[in-house]
């Protein structure tokens, strides 16, 4: 599974509850109202476990985490720089 597919599956399962087809790669999680402050911590934990990266508190920003596309870019950057 690609990074995007894994992330989409996780978001679908845990936040969209199965309706992930409707979520475009660039859709903002905040705009879609699907993630709140406790949700973002769960996503970070998932990324750390699934991709073996360490997410610093200072990286918990919309540009890294607020859409499927942003997360993919963020994970690629983190994995590449390891």
């Amino acid at each position: 599974m690609s990074i995007e597919a894994k992330i989409r599956a996780y978001i679908a399962e845990n936040f969209l509850f199965g309706e992930a087809d409707q979520l475009a790669v660039t859709d903002s999680f905040l705009d879609k109202g699907i993630i709140d402050s406790t949700g973002i911590l769960e996503i970070v934990m998932f990324l750390e476990e699934q991709f073996g990266v360490k997410v610093a508190d200072s990286e918990m920003l919309p540009e890294n985490l607020d859409s499927i596309g942003n997360i993919v870019k963020f994970i690629e950057k983190k994995s590449g720089s390891k």
Partner: peptide, 9 residues
């Protein structure tokens, strides 16, 4: 701010 979702921001 819109919310406290992204604390670093």
């Amino acid at each position: 701010e819109r919310s406290f979702t992204y604390p670093a921001q």
